[in-house]
Amino acid sequence: MKGKYLAGILLVIVAAAAAFALGLSGMAQSTPPERLVIATTTSTVDTGLLDYLKPHFDNEFHANMTWLYLGTGQALAVASRGDADILLVHDRVREDAFVKASNGTHRVTVMYNDFVLIGPQDDPAGVKGMSNVTEAFKRIAAKGEEGKAVFVSRGDNSGTNALELRIWSSAKITAKGKPWYIEAGQGMGPTVRISNEKQGYTVSDRGTWNKLKSEMGDNLKMQILVEGDKALLNPYGIILLNTEKYPNINSKLAEKFFLFMISDEGQKLIADFKVGEDQLFFPLFGKPDTIGLPSEKSEVQYWAQQLTSNQMKPPSWVQQIIVVAIPSIFTGDKN
């Protein structure tokens, strides 16, 4: 009887485990829309941009858009192992290296926002209103040496972190290891909150800053000190992965997402995305030169054609460029 009792328990355990396992695979099978896995940076998730785009994309392409919430460094690493279907990141230098290593086939700048230097309301380094962020960094470092200011870095190898490090290097300052230089090793939101607690300076993308400002209200005792410097521009690239290298990825849906993001509809959606009163991202496909970035003419032309052959509309400004280049295709359809 004891034997039966125990055998019974064991049987129940095994049966329940089997049922759970079946339930899991059943759950996977009963989801008809195909899953797209975007490797992206914390800022596109933290701002809510992807949550906002998801229903539009899912409906249109009968897809299930999901994303891995990573820093740019990790996102590129994960994608280079074939563990994601597409990349949406913001670190031009590493993006280009990624494509050059033939991990990716196509890259375009899809949108941008900008970074802001934020800091405590009393601004001990006195950088408020400066137009040159590199000079502001120098001043913060000087005050930091006096023990009067603190700088909080993402310290997580993310795109934001890379931008901040570029500014330090153009200021010719080695900040790493200094007592006033704190490396958070976390995403944008947590890093801003750490600066808030420490009353330090940090570089944040405008989107995350606005989102936190609207959520935390008076609890966020920080302000924007420097903005508008070209060095603070934050362009986002979208990269199609090399299907020869990664045959297992969902390249079909990835291309659809690529097209969706650069289409007239996608670019308009990006422009319309607001947190509170603020627009967080600015569409930039086909016109990176307007903010002083190198133009991506050949990619833009290629993708404008891809859009039309997929019955999708390129954004109005791209159309105009194409009209000049290949008038016969677009003359009938002017917006």
């Binding site: 899953r35 914390t42 299930n64 891995l68 919430y69 935390m216």
Partner: peptide, 21 residues
Amino acid sequence: GNLLGYTRALTTAIVLLTNQG
């Protein structure tokens, strides 16, 4: 991977929400 609706569990959702403030 904390994928929405697929591999997002309570604990990973808590981390995400915390990061988002």
